[in-house]
Design a binder for these strands. Structure first.
Lengths: 120, 120
DNA sequence: CGGTTGCGGAACCATATGGTTCCATATAGT
DNA sequence: ACTATATGGAACCATATGGTTCCGCAACCG
């Protein structure tokens, strides 16, 4: 297999973008704060020991993933949380929920018998 | 603020590791296959046009995040899915669920908590 | 008007990530 | 004893990520 120039950039699907955005504690903390009220970059930055520019970039990632939208209020750009990507995660999780909500064995057996003479 | 040597490596918390692991379509596809049966690296690699080594590395990431465990069967190292990190994601999501599941008011919460202790 | 605030662009840096190749090792099968 | 199969380690590469600094611009406030 040739070294594959590593693709034409990104091609990120929505779910991947969402998970990637959530894979950072700072960004999750930002989301948590937005749960109760909209907030500007400066307001969101205050709890962290990081430059506002750093926080601004995190918000940029959240926005790119659709987890946040920004409006305008004079110079401020208040962020507001968006539910859709999270709802998508919820849907994705649905398939796996049976793994920890009991009754897994029956499901497993069921699926196993369904794929009868395949593999191996 | 000083350039911050960017920490002493990683410091990854579990949730971050889980989200990061899930932020790749290949790895999600692997998890989906493991939902029905354990599988070896070679078996898991077959659907992808990627070297088995590549897939092996993905499995490594999943294992590091605790999403998978491996046993041994001769030379094979069958992977099995683990529910715990996914359950953690589910718990995390819980806080945000009200964003897309209808209204959030006291009555709703009240009814929800009543339902909890009822039946069974 | 001039100063302050809020924010984003650009350049930069160190490290992480996703992939490859090549090789070593372990086990199975003949 | 050989040969084939399954897997992981190491080195390598290109790009992404998380942070910084410095600067510019828009909008507010005296």
């Amino acid at each position: 297999m040739v070294p594959q120039p590593h693709g034409s950039g990104k091609a990120e699907d929505q779910l991947s973008a969402t998970f990637a955005a959530l894979a950072d504690p700072t960004r999750r903390a930002i989301l948590a704060r937005l749960l109760t009220h909209e907030a500007s970059v400066a307001e969101l930055a205050e709890p962290f020991q990081m430059t506002t520019r750093g926080v601004s970039k995190h918000i940029g990632v959240l926005e790119a993933a659709g987890l946040v939208t920004r409006s305008r209020d004079a110079q401020r750009r208040p962020s507001r949380i968006r539910a859709e990507p999270l709802a998508e995660v919820d849907v994705w999780l649905q398939t796996y929920r049976r793994l920890w909500k009991g009754r897994f064995d029956r499901l497993h057996e069921h699926l196993a018998s369904q794929r009868k003479g395949k593999h191996r």
